[in-house]
Design a protein around this nucleic acid. Structure first.
Length: 216
DNA sequence: GCCAACGTTGGC
DNA sequence: GCCAACGTTGGC
């Protein structure tokens, strides 16, 4: 997914306090058109969850493995999040601001779940891999004068104090659907296949609070 | 490895 | 613009 690349570390504008809109379900989210344009209003998010595969898997003969440990060992612990080829995910990438936090989620592996936290350090710019015929994520339909796909740079921030397994988050999600708790509408479950997704401050803070609790 | 969910493509 | 066929994601 996101190999190599580095960038100057920018200093974040942020604070995790502001109010966020409730569920994406309830707002008239316009799903991206075929050109990827969004026609509904901004609806600002400031917290994210990004998925990557921590275990080796070959795609066109290329290993797509990129877990949080792989990010950690890059120069400046920073890498570009390339290879996103879904319009909704791309549109979320484009909304990201430097300094914002994102959970690093391990997908398609033995134990899926949240492994750590990263910081967005460079806002969306052209994903060069779309023009690279040898890249797994080459997109023949994208023109250099009108690139389709974007990427951001992320920097390792820290590991979770304890790994938060999907199974635990899912139990809480199901419970919260009944009692109106913080994870009732979490995109991780309501839009399970999205590889880049937003979290409300409430969702983000609640998930952080789980670190200090016993596994459910 | 299976397969449900869901995004994309293309014929009409 | 509809929708069936197809491809991908990702949990299990």
């Amino acid at each position: 997914m996101p190999p190599k690349k580095r960038s100057g570390v920018k200093k974040g504008a942020e604070g995790s306090g502001e109010q966020l809109k409730l569920q994406s379900k309830t707002n008239k989210r316009k799903v991206a058109g075929s050109d990827g344009s969004e026609s509904s209003g901004p609806l600002m998010y400031s917290h994210w969850l990004m998925k990557s595969e921590p275990e080796s898997r070959l795609e066109n003969g290329v290993d797509v493995k990129f877990g949080i440990e792989d990010l950690k060992v890059l120069p400046d612990q920073t890498g570009c999040w390339d290879g996103v080829r879904n319009y909704q995910a791309r549109n979320f990438l484009r909304q990201m601001k430097a300094g914002q936090p994102a959970f690093f989620y391990h997908s398609n592996c033995k134990e899926p779940g949240i492994a750590g936290i990263m910081t967005i350090v460079k806002e969306a710019y052209v994903d060069h891999t779309q023009f690279d015929r040898k890249d797994v994520h080459f997109d023949a339909s994208s023109r250099e004068d009108n690139p389709k796909w974007s990427m951001v740079d992320v920097k390792f921030h820290r590991m979770m104090k304890r790994f938060l397994p999907l199974s635990e988050l899912k139990k809480l999600h199901l419970q919260h659907r009944r009692d109106g708790g913080p994870l009732r509408g979490a995109a991780l479950f309501t839009r399970a296949r999205l590889s880049v997704q937003p979290l409300t401050s409430e969702e983000f803070d609640f998930i952080l609070s789980l670190e200090d609790k016993e596994p459910q």
